[in-house]
Design a protein around this nucleic acid. Structure first.
Lengths: 212, 212
DNA sequence: TACTTATGTAAGAGCAGTCTTACATCGATG
DNA sequence: CATCGATGTAAGACTGCTCTTACATAAGTA
């Protein structure tokens, strides 16, 4: 037996692929993207440095798998936060925004990887698939906040404003120019402001259509 | 003679320190932080790979100097955008926000370095000094937009909202989920929304103070 | 049991990069 | 002009990493 989370029985690992991704994310959290290496991940997982190449063709593929897993974890965290919030759509979306901010603060290096690393070719696709799941989750939460007749494109705009505001806020908190206080308060204000922003914009568009 | 920008006269370079920072930034733009190396920067500057160590104690110091130079360049770009905008304070701040977004789009890798890399010890301080200059510039532009009796702390809040919104927007544009269109329009709306957000917030605070 | 496939190891080739050491050259100054 | 401090070079020690090759072991299947 080895660690409780990796029940290695004898020669084989059990589920090395998943173990490598898990340890890769842990390594990222400790050393940042700069300190990431296949050899270190293998050592953390308790296998030889050649073992990862049975599961990932090269370093970049492992990195992309970690990035995809991180996005999936974000998606899960947000979905759970929405679930735990009450039935009010605005409250649910605000809780989601707060959870996003907290996730960024607690998993800085992983988020850096997702946003800053430029994946190429097939690896980019791997990452984008998970991004789509995240977007879908946010779209569902957002459409509940807006009137029923709002188009999908306008809902996407709304998601965009909420996400960019929240992400920018979290990024600045990381820079450390001020302490992270009242995260949920900011999240709530951001959602309401974005909704007003979008609905006001739509109203103006509507006015232009009917009375030019 | 060597390149026009580096008039190397004979054995000595002229101003290698500045040349290394310039080539370092150029290398970052081409390869990202992952591809950055002292040896490559030296080669680009046309000197041996040991030469940089006369000016920077180690790789991290050169990287920090590049980051500081990038922040200084951002500050200059924003100040110039404000200068070229008209006298209207809101228009000036909106032009600044638009310039910020464009800078991020055109200098992705440099911005990634500034935001994602975690500088330690003295290098962090080097970077933060330039950050302060940027903050000061934004504070001056922002205070012209708000009423005269707004405190410095509230002005800082306003800057914070503007910057986080703009930065988040630029970051999402980099992710490429949508094409960058109407950057200045978004910048203008973001500034106005942030001002309304802050002034409304201040009004509410004022109401609470006078009529509890 | 005998065979096959999946998964791991040992060993190392090969390379890129950081940083050091000893030496060469330049510009300035008395 | 002689000297000196600053700046650059040449050469390489040393490290750590990626990825390959040949082999070992396990697990599933006929």
């Amino acid at each position: 037996m080895s660690s409780p989370t990796t029940p290695r029985r004898g020669y084989h690992h059990g589920d090395l692929r998943a173990g490598l991704i898990r340890e890769g994310i842990a390594l990222l959290a400790e050393t940042g993207v700069a300190g990431f290496s296949v050899a270190k991940v293998a050592a953390r997982a308790g296998v030889s440095s050649a073992a990862p190449y049975r599961h990932f063709p090269d370093r970049e593929a492992l990195l992309a798998a970690c990035a995809a897993a991180i996005i999936a974890a974000i998606t899960d965290a947000l979905a759970e936060a929405a679930e735990q919030a009450g039935p009010d759509p605005v409250g649910r979306l605000a809780a989601t925004a707060g959870a996003y901010t907290r996730y960024v603060l607690e998993h800085r290096a992983g988020v850096d990887l997702v946003y800053a690393h430029d994946f190429a070719g097939p690896h980019r696709q791997t990452v984008q698939e998970q991004s789509r799941r995240l977007t879908d989750t946010l779209m569902a939460l957002a459409s509940a906040v807006l009137p029923d007749d709002v188009s999908s494109a306008d809902t996407a705009d709304f998601v965009y404003v909420c996400l960019s505001t929240t992400h920018g806020y979290a990024t600045l908190l990381l820079r450390g120019t001020r302490p992270p206080q009242d995260i949920d308060g900011h999240a709530a204000r951001a959602v309401v402001a974005a909704r007003d922003h979008i609905t006001g914009h739509l109203l103006r568009l509507h006015d232009q259509d009917t009375s030019p």
